[in-house]
Design a protein around this nucleic acid. Sequence first.
DNA 1: CCTATTTGGAAACAATCATTTCCTAATTGG
DNA 2: CCAATTAGGAAATGATTGTTTCCAAATAGG
Lengths: 205, 205
Amino acid sequence: MSIDISPTSARAAGRPREFDIDEALDKAITVFSEQGYHGTSISDLREAMGLTAGSLYKAFKDKHAIFLASFDRYKQVRNALLDEELAKATDGRDGVRRMLAFYAEGAHGDGGRRGCLAVGTAVELAIFDDEAARRVERSMDRFETTFEALIRRGQEDGTVNRSIEPNATARLLLSVVQGLRVLGKTSPSRAQTFSVVDVAMTLLD
Amino acid sequence: MSIDISPTSARAAGRPREFDIDEALDKAITVFSEQGYHGTSISDLREAMGLTAGSLYKAFKDKHAIFLASFDRYKQVRNALLDEELAKATDGRDGVRRMLAFYAEGAHGDGGRRGCLAVGTAVELAIFDDEAARRVERSMDRFETTFEALIRRGQEDGTVNRSIEPNATARLLLSVVQGLRVLGKTSPSRAQTFSVVDVAMTLLD
DNA sequence: CCTATTTGGAAACAATCATTTCCTAATTGG
DNA sequence: CCAATTAGGAAATGATTGTTTCCAAATAGG
């Protein structure tokens, strides 16, 4: 029995995995987003991920673990894209607009129909699944905090009205964004979706 | 073979049903709201509704029919309550406030955790279930139209700013309301929920 | 009172569910 | 090159799924 401090890059003993875990999770994200957790069977996942049950259960403990891993990857990818977008923001107001536009972009057309995995998880699993609920709450908190920070930044740089309440307004914008994801399920037009963004922006005047 | 134009009140031949359909559907609504369609088994429904499988399948064609009947009753009850609330409105602005408050009231605490059956249906079933999707769309349209009518009424009676665009603003309010239902799944406080309503109302100034 | 009709309810149904088992294949370390 | 370890994959697992069947009970109309 020896203490193992091997780097993660070192390949473990045994036959190497023949598929990329993240690529497989990306397929799982699509299925879970479209069909939900209970609506997705292991067969659905096998087919979408191109794996046999054996491989699935060697890579993940069970269906629930596949779901949580999919959720985590979904958030990681989406957050990275959002951060990239927010890095371009010239001021607080521009940041809010970019953030709203980022979600509006995902809430219409095919992506809107597919849905948001965080919203789906909140609606389907948050009551009885503590691990899922914790992840949803963390995700919502992050959005709210980011909105609030952008509003405060705008109030300092003069692009956002100083008399509005940052936290309450951030929470309203969070509601709008989650609501757009729900409405996106009935595939509204791009214009319809972005008109909501335009109205929301007037709150900063 | 004779043409039957008997009133619906006349009892048909055969053993009479021993349970009230609407009461049973109210139990089903709770289960479907909490667990979703795929997360709810016939056993769950039997237990909640206090019925045997035989009785269930004599009253309804199948699980899907139970769900649609539950959805229809949910909307009927909620719409009746909303109409009652809106009848008290003194002007357009007051109507918008009452409508927002009506949903905020249902979106926090235990009711918020339980969730909205329309939102759950939109998220879980709208893509692959046409009958469910049609019902969701009709429900959303009704909300949007009601909001828009209240805004126009407010613009006429002088309680709502005449320079705002009624349709776009109505759609934003619709988004807010749906978003509150999503956020309600992580059981926010009453104050947190209503602060969103207060901010939304400033759009009418 | 008899027939037709419908419900209540237990038991049975095939199908599908998530998961495991078992064997072979592929790799690492010694 | 051998032992240990892990992955791939087909087949089997028991449990649960939604639904049906069958029989007794309760009603209406004739």
